[in-house]
Nucleic acid binder design. Structure first.
Lengths: 237, 237
DNA sequence: GCATATTTGTCCGTATGTATA
DNA sequence: CTATACATACGGACAAATATG
């Protein structure tokens, strides 16, 4: 028992709204993979570990369910979402719509150097992380790169949509056995896109990204095909 | 007291999950304007009227808060969102991104007649409603038209985003003193867009819609400017 | 500025219904 | 089919914050 180390988080528990703080903690644990896709989040275990009441925890569950990180099955409890093939396709359809449009609009958009700086920072971060051999952080860096692209739209609402979509994407990454092998080629393509963007070729950058997304989708869908047999018994406990 | 007629909805209360049913009821009441923007939703009053416990009602509040229909102020309660100028701008920026892209992609997209039928139905509905002088339903018909356009993207995720955005738009409509005068010109433009789409001119339809959205945004922002002084004391009670 | 009443935030205990072993 | 475990929903309690006079 106590395989996820929630006890250590109890110290963080003492500032704003309890339910949101609990949600924040669980979000982090899910991103880290302490609760992998398909895992069930038992009410009693977590209330005990965090020292909050069931009502409060359930409010946190609602928040995360709305973010699509958890799925709620009536009278059965909440589970970490296991994205299926349709989810992956939808995810990439959204990304093509939003991210590519964002790049195309960048010459006309008012977001000049401010947005580019965030993208450049994400690229640098990816290179650092790769050198440091921190495989878990590779996904994070990639996601931050795409969040920065989405922010070019200048819409808080779209930014939120993409934050959610990319968080869900992290669950998809979970099917990849070797994160490094998967992420490494995309890091250099991230840099190419940044360069195209920095030199004012937004249309070309969008084209690069579009191909990039199609490749990534194909690769993930292929991984799904081969992973569908195993990978499950451990999560269902 | 009891100015919103919630008692009548008690009969509908008996199927799936209580919190969601409560949320559905409140959603409807907000759309109808029984709870106008800025109105506070008191816990005790509603628990009494609907016959549900406070915990259950609070869960329903969470759902609607996540949908941006309600805003939650710590230790003060929940209120129907009052969209500000920034909200309106963001709302229309999203609409231009999503709806116009959806129209542009329609010739290549696999959604042929299926999606068009839904759009045509919404246009017809708008004409019926106009004839029937049902001013409240005018906004609904217009919203359904744009939902149908968003569905052309074929992404469940984007469809959900737009459902939420358009529900919030209804709150914006609330500042218009005369719904008919506001909506009527757009009904004919809806029809023009449908015609362009039906004859395969997706690019032209997108152009029409883009202008349409800019006009509507300007008109609503102008209404906001003049309404900012009055319109408030009644809601804050 | 102060005291009071109201309302929310949080937690608990329990009864009922549902799914799974 | 029974038993167990769990989620749902209710009602009550008290502290804390807010609104009211």
């Amino acid at each position: 028992m106590e395989a996820h180390g929630l006890m250590a988080d109890r110290a963080l528990l003492g500032r704003t709204s309890t339910a949101e703080r609990v949600a924040e903690i669980l979000r982090g644990r899910i991103a880290q993979g302490c609760f992998p896709p398909g895992a069930r989040l038992a009410e009693e275990e977590i209330t005990e570990a965090l020292g909050v009441s069931r009502n409060t925890l359930r409010e946190a569950f609602r928040l995360l369910t709305q973010e699509r990180l958890l799925v709620h099955e009536l009278n059965r409890g909440v589970f970490v979402r296991v994205p299926d093939v349709a989810d992956v396709k939808d995810l990439f359809r959204v990304r093509r719509y939003v991210e590519c449009s964002a790049l195309r609009a960048v010459p006309q958009g008012s977001e000049g150097p401010a947005g580019l700086a965030a993208i450049a920072a994400a690229v640098r971060q990816g290179q650092l992380v790769l050198a440091a051999q921190d495989l878990q952080a590779l996904g994070t860096a990639d996601i931050e790169f795409h969040e920065a692209i989405s922010d070019l739209t200048g819409s808080a609402r779209i930014a939120e949509l993409m934050r959610g979509a990319l968080a869900e994407l992290r669950l998809v990454f979970y099917v990849m056995d070797n994160p490094r092998w998967f992420h490494e080629p995309y890091l250099v393509r991230n840099e190419e896109i940044l360069d195209a963007l920095a030199s004012g070729h937004g249309e070309y950058a969008a084209e690069l990204l579009c191909k990039y997304l199609e490749d990534a989708e194909q690769q993930l869908l292929a991984a799904y095909g081969s992973a569908h047999t195993g990978k499950r018994a451990e999560h269902l406990k």
